[in-house]
Design a binder for these strands. Sequence first.
DNA 1: CAGTTAATGAAACACTTGTTTCGATAAGAT
DNA 2: ATCTTATCGAAACAAGTGTTTCATTAACTG
Lengths: 208, 208
Amino acid sequence: MDQPSRSAGTVRPGGRTARVRAAVLEATQDELVERGFHELTMDQVAARAGVGKTTVYRRWGSPSGLVTDLMNELADQSSPHADTGGIEGDLRANAVSVLNALNDERLGVTFQAVIAAGTGDEPAARALHAFYLRRIQEWANVVDLAVARGELPAGTDGAEVIRAISAPLYYRLVVTREPVTREVAERSVARTLAAARAGAFVTTGSRG
Amino acid sequence: MDQPSRSAGTVRPGGRTARVRAAVLEATQDELVERGFHELTMDQVAARAGVGKTTVYRRWGSPSGLVTDLMNELADQSSPHADTGGIEGDLRANAVSVLNALNDERLGVTFQAVIAAGTGDEPAARALHAFYLRRIQEWANVVDLAVARGELPAGTDGAEVIRAISAPLYYRLVVTREPVTREVAERSVARTLAAARAGAFVTTGSRG
DNA sequence: CAGTTAATGAAACACTTGTTTCGATAAGAT
DNA sequence: ATCTTATCGAAACAAGTGTTTCATTAACTG
C-alpha cells in the first residue's frame, strides 16, 4: 500500500534528486576508500553527503544498494575496446585497463565492495553479472578482428579469451590476496595468447 | 588492561572449550548456508550453537572472525596433491577438486564468505592469503614432477600453472557470477596445458 | 582428590541501526 | 506565475548489535 509503484527518484529525476544522488554516490566512494565496505553505514554516508538519512534508506535501502548503484554508474562511463591493429596490443590494452582499474584507489575499492556485496545480495550479484558480461562482449570484438586478420584460428571464442585475460588479476586481488602488478598482467596476456594460438580457445561443435 | 595477553581458549583448550568452538563453527556454517555472510550475526550464531553470546563475542569478535577461524579449520583438513602419473590427469584432478569445493553447498558458501570478509578485514585477508599459498605450493609439485618426466619445458613455474587452473573458476564464481561447471574446469585445464607446453609458464631470468 | 582460576553465560546496559511520521521544499505541469 | 505533489529531511521511535558485570562451571595443577 505504502510502497510506491516505482522507486523514489524515478518520476522527478531532475535538479534536486540528481544532486542528492551525485552527493550520495560521491560520499559512498569516499567512505569506501577511507573505511571499506565493511564499515559502510547508511548514517555515515548520509551525514557525509549532507542529506537526510531517511532519503538514503528510502532510495538505496542498504550498503549493498549503494555500491550496486555505484557499479551501474560506472557501467555507463566505460569505454569501447582498443584497436591497436594487432591482437597482442589489443589484449595488452585490455589487461592494462583492468590492471589500472584494480589498482586505482577509488575504482579498486569500489570493485572489491561490489564483489563482496555480490556474494550475499541478489541485486548486487545481478549488477556484477550484467556489468562484466557487457565488458566481455565489448572486448570480445578484438578477437573476432584478429581471427579475420588471420592472427588466431577460426572459431576462437572471443569472450573466453577476454575472460582469460582478466581472471588471473581478479584471482589475485580477491582470492589469494597477492599484489596485482604489471608483470602479472603481461604474463596473463602472453599465456592467453599462447593458448589461443594453439587453438585452445576454439569452440568445437558450437554450431550443432 | 582487561585484555588477556592471549585470546580466550588458548590456555585451556581441552573439553569444554573445544566443544564450544566446534558448536560455534558448525552453527556458523549452517547460518552461512541458510542466510549468507551478509546476515551472519553473532547473536544468531550463539543461539544456534547453544552458547552464550558473550563467549562468541569474546573469542571471535566479529562475523569476519568467525569465517576466518572456519577457513583456518579447513586449512588443516586439506589433502595432498594427486599423483595420476601424468600432468593432464593431475591438473584435471586439481580443477575438479576446486570445482567440487566451490559447488559444495557448505564449502562454497564458506569460501565466498571468507572472500567477502577478506575485502575489508585484515585477519581474514591474511587467512585467505596463507591458505591459498599453501594449497598452491602443495599442488605446484605436480608440475615439477611433470618437468622431471619431460612432459613440460624445464623452468616451468609450477605455482603459476596451479594459479592458472583455479583463476577462471573463481573469476566466474565471484566476479562475473556465472555458473562454474565441469566444462569450465575442463577448459581451464586444456588452456593452461596448451600454454604450458608452449613454454608460456617458463620463468626467464628467475635466478638473475 | 582438592584447589586454583580460565572460561563460560545470564542479565543489565549503552550504543547503533533502521523505520515511521509528518511538515517543508522544489520539480514539473498548466 | 501558480498549483500539485514527488521528494526530501528532522525528530521521535522501535529494533538490533555490541559491551560490561559478575556469579557459575569445569579444565588443569599438584
